[in-house]
């Protein structure tokens, strides 16, 4: 190991540790002792990561309340940052909450973190174009069965048993913390970006299997079969039209193809 490597590794350990191990590598003088000097870097590391995570996880902050800072500190201790962009330190928060005690006993926290992170990643995901009604209307009737709806790459579906969207909405709007609700069955929250604005909403029970099928690239005929499991024949058709109109309006479809 070179002398430069050794110094950098000592500094790394000194910044990550609660208290610096003794080192002769750093000069002490009348202005300040080594511990006071290292403390500035150690304090700065934690503050910067906390600030970055606070920005990305506003829904989690709303849900965790006073426990939020302790949660962040434990995460920072357990997971040193690895990405050059400090924001990306947030990529492991949901997984951490899902396995680490005591938070794994409150699965709503991991679900909340997943929603916050999905919103964060959609914010600066690649730009995509959207298909409009005119383009969809121009598809010949006999081509619809094999029509493939190419959905936005930034579209994400998140399963949840809790009203996580309500917490995020409260955080976004500066509204009071909502009451936690646990549903009997998991529902899906959709996250996507239209233009430069990130959106999220809870999906209706009949919508998410159809949307998930579209995201898997299944043809339109297959989407109709999926929707028919929730509606009789007379109701399925107008419901599919409504879903398509909603997806077009939300800018969810980036292109059309044939299977």
């Amino acid at each position: 190991m070179s002398a430069l490597q050794a110094i950098q590794q000592q500094m790394l350990q000194a910044v990550l540790a609660e208290k610096a191990p003794p080192t002769n590598a750093i000069r002490s003088d009348d202005i300040a002792d080594v511990e006071s000097r290292l403390a500035i870097y150690r304090h700065g590391y934690r503050i910067r990561l906390r600030d970055a995570l606070r920005t990305e996880f506003s829904g989690l902050q709303c849900m965790a309340g006073q426990r939020f800072d302790a949660l962040l500190d434990k995460y920072i201790d357990a997971h040193p940052s690895e990405h050059y962009n400090i924001r990306w330190h947030g990529s492991g928060v949901a997984a951490f909450l899902a396995y680490a005690r005591p938070w794994r006993d409150k699965p709503q926290l991991a679900e909340m973190a997943r929603l916050d992170w999905a919103i964060s990643t959609a914010f600066d995901a690649a730009n995509e174009t959207s298909v409009g009604m005119a383009e969809l209307s121009s598809v010949p009737p006999d081509a619809w069965a094999n029509l493939q709806l190419l959905m936005q790459e930034n579209l994400q579906l998140l399963g949840s048993l809790y009203n996580i969207d309500a917490f995020r909405r409260a955080a976004d709007n500066g509204a009071p913390r909502p009451r936690l609700r646990r549903f009997d069955q998991a529902h899906q929250v959709m996250v996507w970006r239209k233009g430069t604005t990130v959106h999220y909403r809870k999906l209706d029970p009949d919508e998410w299997p159809v949307l998930a099928a579209a995201m898997r690239g299944e043809p339109f005929a297959s989407l109709c079969v999926t929707l028919a499991q929730h509606h009789d024949e007379s109701a399925a058709m107008p419901r599919m039209v409504a879903l398509l109109q909603g997806w077009l309006e939300a800018g969810l479809i980036r292109g059309l193809a044939t299977v």
Binding site: L4, P80, E82, H83, Y84
Partner: peptide, 25 residues
């Protein structure tokens, strides 16, 4: 400066030792 080592990023502008080795590097 350096901002991290061993795959860990400290997100800080860490000073270098002012040595010939560091200079070459």
């Amino acid at each position: 400066c350096w901002t991290g080592v061993q795959g860990v990023n400290l997100h800080d502008l860490m000073p270098l030792p002012y040595t010939e080795e560091a200079l070459d590097h």
